[in-house]
Simulated assay, not measured.
Amino acid sequence: MMIKVVRGNPTPEELAAALAVVRARAAAASATPSGASGPRDSWSDPARIAAHRLPQPGPATWTRTYWPG
């Protein structure tokens, strides 16, 4: 693995920290099977929105928020 600094003048400690993060991410990526997806993020889950009733149309609809709760 080769890392090239293209801008700035990092200290040896900063380089070591950056390399540790890159190695940890690479190890985590190689440990996950290629066909398997990672854990689903709750923000991207469409069931989160559909689980609640949305406000019904009416004269005061503009005063209600789109996100119930």
Rank of each mutant, 00 (worst) to 15 (best):
R48V: 13
P59Y: 04
G8Q: 02
R40M: 12
G69S: 07
P46D: 11
V5G: 08
S37F: 13
A36I: 06
V6L: 13
G38M: 07
P55I: 01
T11M: 03
A26C: 01
R48L: 15
H52P: 02
P55F: 01
T63K: 09
M1W: 05
A16W: 00
V21A: 09
A24W: 00
P68L: 00
A20E: 13
A17M: 06
R64N: 06
P46H: 09
R23C: 02
S44I: 09
A24Y: 02
A24M: 07
E13D: 15
P10Y: 08
R7K: 14
V5F: 00
G58M: 02
T65K: 11
T63Q: 09
L19H: 02
P57W: 01
G38E: 15
R7V: 07
D41C: 08
T65M: 04
D45R: 12
E14G: 01
P39Q: 11
A51L: 12
S42I: 06
A27W: 01
T61E: 07
A20Q: 09
R23G: 01
M1C: 07
V5A: 05
A20Y: 00
S34M: 08
W67T: 10
G69I: 02
S44Y: 09
A17G: 03
M1T: 11
D41W: 06
A27L: 06
A24F: 00
S37D: 10
I3R: 10
A18C: 06
Q56S: 09
A27C: 00
